[in-house]
Amino acid sequence: MLHEITFTVNGDPYTLAVRSEHTLLKVLREKLGLTGTKIGCENGECGACTVLLDGEPVNSCLILAVEAAGHKIETVEGMSIGGELHPLQKAFIKHNAVQCGFCTPGMLLSAQSLLARNPKPTELEVREALAGNLCRCTGYVRIVDAVLDVSQEVE
């Protein structure tokens, strides 16, 4: 069954017809072409599909598109609108926190949400906030360094 939903994605309003069973992940990728949000497990276990829903990190594979109606969604594509990189994106580049890059969008959004609610996290708090975002390449150390680097700048 089709539902018409209206929601905000990266600041822009969208009205779309979506099927009941389609996830937010599927709609973002296939209807809006926002392929920066990745499919890793479709089970809420890896964090590759993390987006922000009203500022909170969620696994977009576990949210039905209809549940996003009336909410604000942010994806990685929204972090650098206007061509200027977000401080976290700059820090990920500076610290070589990127390898294969598949977990990177989800990591960035989890980190962005953390810093929004806790601008000066401890290392442990960063690690806890990123524990739902799996990475097989980096060993996490550079990612944690990058987030802490940005948190220092917040002062």
């Binding site: 990685v76 594509e77 650098s80 580049i93 990127v98």
Partner: peptide
Amino acid sequence: VPRVDAFDKVTGAAKYVDDMQ
């Protein structure tokens, strides 16, 4: 020196097979 692929990967612009239309 910085990685040549990092900018694409932090912006979500990097295309993987599943992203191809």
